Amino acid sequence: MLPMMGRGGSIILVSSAMHDMGLANHSTYAATKAALRSYVRTWAAEFVDNGIRANTLSPGVVDTPILDSQAGTTEEAAAIREGYARYTPMLRLGRPEELANAALFLASDESSFMTGSDMVVDGGVSNV
């Protein structure tokens, strides 16, 4: 895709707040998200002469149907959501539109001075 991107292009990889945390039983997931973060840092340096920016978007837990797949019943799914919300400093899950807004920012000229950055939208879970 790189040859098809024009100057001012923006690459956004979705990582996770997990790339910066040490949480038991999440080693493979965290390692793959850390790899994405590494790609972005390298691409930021490699693509600068092409006028192409690269950044990561690192969400925390977002309230999407994938959470239902972690449970057998509606009650279990509600308990999972409540547990994640209690774990998050903002005491709630992220909403899909909050991540979409962050991605739109990274894709737009409003973030034209950002490259190699990691935009963390996780309700504070990785920093508080």
Rank of each mutant, 00 (worst) to 15 (best):
M1H: 07
M4P: 03
G6D: 10
G6H: 13
R7C: 05
G8S: 12
G9S: 15
S10T: 14
I11H: 03
I11M: 10
I11W: 01
I12T: 15
I12S: 03
V14N: 13
S15W: 01
S15H: 04
A17M: 15
M18F: 03
H19A: 07
D20L: 09
G22A: 14
A24Y: 07
A24S: 14
A24P: 12
A24H: 09
N25S: 07
N25R: 15
S27P: 07
S27G: 13
Y29C: 12
Y29D: 05
A30R: 07
A31F: 02
T32W: 01
K33D: 02
A34R: 14
A35C: 06
A35Y: 11
R37I: 00
R41K: 15
T42L: 12
A45C: 07
E46D: 15
F47S: 07
V48M: 10
V48F: 02
D49L: 08
N50T: 13
G51D: 00
I52Y: 01
I52L: 02
A54N: 02
N55Y: 01
N55S: 09
G60A: 04
V61M: 08
V62A: 08
D63N: 12
I66H: 08
L67W: 03
L67K: 05
D68P: 14
S69P: 08
A71T: 13
A71K: 09
A71D: 06
T74H: 09
E75V: 07
E76T: 08
A77D: 05
A78Q: 06
A79N: 15
A79G: 13
R81C: 04
E82P: 10
G83H: 01
G83F: 00
Y87I: 00
T88L: 01
T88I: 04
T88G: 01
P89Y: 00
L91Q: 13
L91G: 06
R92C: 07
R92I: 05
L93D: 12
L93F: 11
R95N: 09
R95H: 08
R95E: 11
P96A: 02
E97M: 06
E97P: 14
E98L: 04
E98R: 14
E98H: 08
A100F: 00
A100G: 12
A100T: 14
N101R: 14
N101S: 13
A103I: 03
L104K: 10
L106A: 04
A107W: 06
S108E: 00
E110I: 07
E110S: 14
S111E: 04
F113D: 12
M114A: 05
M114T: 04
T115L: 09
T115W: 10
G116T: 09
S117N: 04
D118T: 05
V120K: 10
V121R: 08
V121C: 08
G124W: 01
V125L: 01
V125Q: 02
S126R: 09
S126Q: 04
S126C: 09
N127S: 15
